[in-house]
Design a protein around this nucleic acid. Structure first.
Lengths: 147, 147
DNA sequence: GATTATATATAAGCGCGCTTAACTATTCAG
DNA sequence: CTGAATAGTTAAGCGCGCTTATATATAATC
């Protein structure tokens, strides 16, 4: 059993490195794509959940339905989101990423993947195997503890 | 040697999970703290580099010096940053985090650490050890390949 | 020492994302 | 069937972060 202190320290260091790097790239991506923090979060949420109504996104982000509606509207105009009536409850508009939207948001994840690949390509196969095992564990755990 | 495809897939999945979660918390943190994307990036950069001049931050973020100056000014007023003349070149104002600023930005990293701890606390000691090893490798690699 | 370049600050103005409030359409409850 | 609740849109207005342009102070160049 690893010491709790050491464990926390390692997680914290990794969080720091990962976030420092991704926060910066996040800003650049926003500038290049012209998307806001809320719009990017909306797309990530839809990428993650597949499809959902507008109010759920408002709740997820902590902004008003009006703000979400406006953000979504611009995304639809840009061709990144599709919006269709839910036949079960016609008040609800189900949102989902278009292929174009999916491709765009995947760029964000992919640039992070490339960065990590750059970090690992000088490591030994054993070390790379360790990283695969660890990230697989973490990713699986994250999917299990989801809201 | 792990297959390249499998490796990329694992990295990509982890990037997706980590970013989905941290982008959302990032937005909430911005709202609670009243800080902008640029201000948070500025603080992360200073946390990372220790101390640097204003123009370097502008370059890092891809915004004008005027914008950086304004952002920094608000951070100084909030007591999160210190600004002092560089004795070597008195045109330069060296910026650094105050204790208060450091404490605040550490909350961002710490909430990510807590999230990962939550993901790992049901794993076996062996699995936890694997994660420690992997993240240590990644963090070290990141520090080596730094600009 | 005069000129030019650099580092930062300040000012004016624009665009945009947010909020509240008002409105439409649909569903639910009695 | 009527009234209340819910999902989303639209409109008006505010605050803020960005840009360009201008100003100031210091440093480097000749």
């Amino acid at each position: 059993m690893p010491s709790t202190e050491r464990f926390s320290e390692v997680l914290r260091d990794w969080a720091q490195v990962f976030m420092h790097r991704s926060a910066r790239d996040f800003k650049h991506f926003m500038d290049e794509s012209g998307l806001s923090v809320s719009q990017l979060n909306t797309m990530m949420r839809l990428y993650h959940k597949g499809e959902c109504g507008l109010s759920e996104i408002s709740g997820h982000l902590g902004i008003s339905n009006a703000a979400t509606s406006q953000a979504v509207d611009r995304l639809v105009q840009m061709g990144l989101l599709g919006r269709r009536e839910d036949p079960q409850d016609r008040r609800v508009k189900q949102l989902e990423l278009t292929d174009q939207g999916r491709t765009l948001i995947e760029k964000v994840f992919d640039s992070r993947r490339q960065w990590m690949e750059g970090l690992t390509d000088t490591l030994t196969p054993d070390q790379q195997e360790t990283i695969i095992d660890a990230l697989t564990l973490l990713t699986r755990a994250a999917h299990n503890t989801e809201d």
